[in-house]
């Protein structure tokens, strides 16, 4: 009972943090798994969303929603730029695209610090969710609790769109056979642009939603990119459910894991990632299983 009590907050926080990572990684996994673009500038779009949301926030609900809208639009525009940049490279494999987006991320980081400076930008969130609540005798931030709900809804909506709608079916088809989708009358560049735009919108939205937890600052892009890459690799690129499981697993590793064994905290994330990758390769089994296994052993 004592152990459960001690680890309750980290475990709950792992869910919130994991969902944040899921929202952050969703755009990356979509674009990489389906579009084949490993977007190194993904973290930069997340940071852009955060800065935009922070710049309009004044503590009112209307500014909070405006912030999310602006962040999403900003992310979409970034995605459009990405689409235009990567389209000419479409038949040259992964590496040139990764090279390009790496370059874009370096340029983007410089632009963001030039515009917003090197200090972290605080987001002023509405008073009613800025405080704390009591859960089973523990203090916990209200915003993170709300975030769990919002992110869960987003995850369900994403699964629905990808699994049950015509647009989703088209995207899944594009992942398997681009030429076939082309033959159906959808120009490949349109599918590509739609994917990049959607991925950018998701990244911007995630940045806006996540800003009160991972505030926009000069380190944000790198951190989000690194964690998102871990998530999509563990969850198998393109799989929404896989990314969900992996994100929760990584969230728990970063919270419950360090709470249980703080001596090994520095090694936990990448150690378990390496183990999961190798275990999966040896077993040749599904990614979700490996991701969940990594979480269970934490």
């Amino acid at each position: 009972m004592g152990a459960i009590n001690t680890h309750f907050v980290p475990a709950l926080d792992g869910v919130a943090y994991g969902l944040l990572l899921f929202v952050a990684a969703a755009g990356l996994t979509l674009l990489f798994g389906i579009g084949g673009v490993l977007n190194i500038a993904h973290g930069t779009l997340f940071a852009l969303g955060g800065y935009l949301a922070a710049s309009v926030s004044d503590g009112s609900w209307s500014s909070a929603f405006l912030g999310l809208a602006v962040a999403t639009v900003g992310g979409t525009l970034g995605g459009g730029l990405l689409a235009a940049g990567t389209l000419p490279l479409a038949d040259r494999g992964h590496l040139p695209q990764a090279l390009l987006t790496f370059g874009l991320s370096l340029v983007g980081a410089d632009v963001l610090t030039t515009v917003y400076g090197t200090d972290e930008h605080p987001v002023v969130i509405p008073k009613s969710v800025n405080g704390t609540v009591q859960i089973f005798g523990h203090v916990y931030p209200t915003y993170r609790l709300m975030f769990i709900v919002v992110a869960s809804v987003l995850a369900l909506a994403g699964t629905y769109v990808l699994g049950r709608t015509r647009a989703g079916a088209l995207l899944r088809a594009a992942a398997d056979d681009r030429e076939m989708v082309g033959a159906m009358g959808y120009a490949p560049w349109r599918v590509h642009a739609a994917l990049c735009g959607a991925a950018g919108a998701l990244a911007g939205l995630a940045g806006g939603l996540g800003a009160p937890i991972i505030g926009p600052g000069p380190d944000t892009a790198d951190k989000v990119l690194m964690l998102s890459m871990v998530v999509i690799v563990l969850g198998r690129p393109g799989s929404v459910l896989g990314a969900f499981g992996a994100a929760i697993a990584v969230g728990e590793i970063e919270t419950l894991g360090v709470s249980i064994s703080s001596n090994w905290a520095p090694y936990l994330l990448f150690g378990l990632m390496a183990v999961a990758l190798v275990v999966r390769t040896f077993r040749g089994s599904s990614a979700v299983g490996a991701g969940a296994a990594a979480g269970a052993h934490a």
Binding site: K223, E254, T255, L256, V258
Partner: peptide, 9 residues
């Protein structure tokens, strides 16, 4: 980025 688990102790 998240100090909550450390603070819980």
């Amino acid at each position: 980025t998240d100090f909550t688990p450390f603070l819980s102790k």
